[in-house]
Nucleic acid binder design. Sequence first.
DNA 1: TAATAATGACTACAGACGTAATTGATAAGT
DNA 2: ACTTATCAATTACGTCTGTAGTCATTATTA
Lengths: 125, 125
Amino acid sequence: MSEIPKISEAEWEVMKVVWSKSSPCTANEIVDALIDVADWKPNTIKTLINRLVKKKAIGYEEERRFYLYYPLVSQAECIKSETKSFVKRVFGGAFQPMLAAFLKDEKLSPEEIEELKRLIEERKE
Amino acid sequence: MSEIPKISEAEWEVMKVVWSKSSPCTANEIVDALIDVADWKPNTIKTLINRLVKKKAIGYEEERRFYLYYPLVSQAECIKSETKSFVKRVFGGAFQPMLAAFLKDEKLSPEEIEELKRLIEERKE
DNA sequence: TAATAATGACTACAGACGTAATTGATAAGT
DNA sequence: ACTTATCAATTACGTCTGTAGTCATTATTA
């Protein structure tokens, strides 16, 4: 199976942008999208992009003078892998205690609670 | 409020041990507890302990020749802070989508599902 | 008492990360 | 054609992390 690379906090912001695009995008599009999100210089974002390329989290094709970047790993895969390592670290791998901790603590709207119930019901079969 | 220090992956293992003890414990007790968990040399563990002291995550009192370590931050606080940053990174801060992603994906036993339902119900009032 | 063991302090070192500046190559404008 | 703007590549640098080794001090043991 494809190994999911470890994506750092700052890199995640870049990935989110890349994932959000339906088609490959230029470095500048990524920079523009991130200006609102993070207070980074364009060069900083370029660095993050390059590191993601090196990690094989994104790929690119050359389109004349610029590169077009696209994800090599899906968001779902990354979420899964990231959450697994998180749950492992904090809860020793047990998923249920984590949910329990959350349900006790988080502010959830009644609608969200309903939605969760629905999801759980769905899981029941 | 007290700032929760950022605790690294390896450091979490140490914290878990310190939290698990009801009274302050020596470095050696921590080392012994971790031998089974991680393949670390005692010195490695000492380093982690020292870093946690520096971060003010644990404190110590001198008891003759050795130090007795005890947590300065509660596990609940750390879990909360850690989870917040995790959810922020991966889900942009929205907790509900995370649960949704999990419920779709994780293997949960029927009992666990029941338990979750119960927790959600409990949250309803 | 002198050698040795134990324990904490200090030092080490490579790789990841956050944050960017500088350089080099190429395209576009004058 | 020469200058300038643009984009990617390379280099930079301090901090954090994982993973220890070495040193210094004190206690124990022969």
